[in-house]
Design a protein around this nucleic acid. Structure first.
Length: 266
DNA sequence: ATTGTGGCCTGCCCGC
DNA sequence: TGCGGGCAGGCCACAA
């Protein structure tokens, strides 16, 4: 599903869509427009303008909008992908495989599209409508991006919290980009139990966590998806810890299905 | 403020 | 063979 690695791949793909005049804006489903905006407002923002730059904060893509003359447009455009959203530019997908989504190319799932005057298009295909389009997305509501997280930022995100460690890792307001699969993978690699109180980590454990967060994100970016972790094949009933062979526990932590090893995650 | 819960969305898979 | 229930989780609203 789209966590940080997929959305980073989308960002790179989206660079192909920059500086190309928008001829027509297609909102396939009005429910896909979020945050109180309207399809008309989104169309009005993009029509006749072009995308200037694209940045990623966690799982959010933010596009600068420009006038054809090069001046800044009146607002920025945000794209979210939920767990089933796919980005395509000129028909090419940002990622090959998307766990829990469908690989079919049903045109009814094209929830949002920018058709360029050159004939190409940027398309968000999302069977389940869990993603969305935002006008002037509230980036201040997101914590620092997980990929460039510093030790001080991790400490700030965890210290003095009674919430489960995994819930804090997935709290986009504190650390942006970590979703369910990556949280399980990182905690498994770091040997930390998902239900531990976030504020209970020692400085050494925080260092270990940050080390494995960076390593994991690097690995998954390279492998091409949040579903390519070493724990992933065992996140099934009867699955066993790839490290020591013990049967994994399946719990709900932070409201999400959590697979973890009771032997080495403490 | 912090933390937890339920709902939204719908394709897909399993069991009957 | 068709049908129905359960499941998946990012995000948001809401409750205590």
């Amino acid at each position: 599903m789209p966590e940080l690695p997929e959305v980073e791949a989308y960002r790179r793909l989206a660079e192909r869509a920059l500086h190309r005049p928008v001829d027509r804006v297609q909102v396939g489903d009005p429910r896909f427009v979020r945050g109180g905006a309207t399809p008309r407002a989104v169309s009005g923002l993009l029509q006749g303008r072009l995308l200037g730059a694209v940045t990623r904060i966690g799982k959010l893509l933010v596009f600068d909008v420009m006038e054809k003359g090069g001046d800044s447009g009146p607002a920025r455009l945000g794209l979210r992908f939920g767990m089933t959203g796919r980005l395509l530019v000129d028909g090419a997908p940002g990622v090959d495989a998307l766990l829990y989504s469908s690989d079919r190319a049903d045109p009814a799932w094209d929830r949002f599209a920018l058709h360029f005057t050159d004939g190409g298009a940027l398309v968000v295909r999302d069977p389940r409508l869990l993603g969305g389009v935002h006008l002037d997305p509230d980036t201040a509501a997101l914590g620092p991006d997980a990929l460039s997280l510093t030790p001080a930022q991790l400490r700030f995100a965890l210290d003095r919290s009674a919430a489960p460690l995994k819930a804090r890792l997935m709290d986009q307001a504190r650390i942006a980009g970590v979703g369910n699969l990556i949280a399980d993978e990182v905690l498994w690699r770091a040997g930390l139990a998902p239900g531990r109180a976030a504020g209970s980590l020692t400085p050494a454990e925080q260092r270990r966590l940050l080390h494995h967060l960076r390593r994991t994100l690097g690995d998954l970016l390279e492998r091409g998806g949040s579903h390519t972790g070493d724990l992933m094949p065992e996140r099934i009933p009867g699955g066993r810890c790839p490290r020591d062979g013990v049967e994994l526990c399946r719990d709900v932590v932070g409201g999400r299905t959590t697979w973890w090893c009771p032997a080495h995650q403490r």
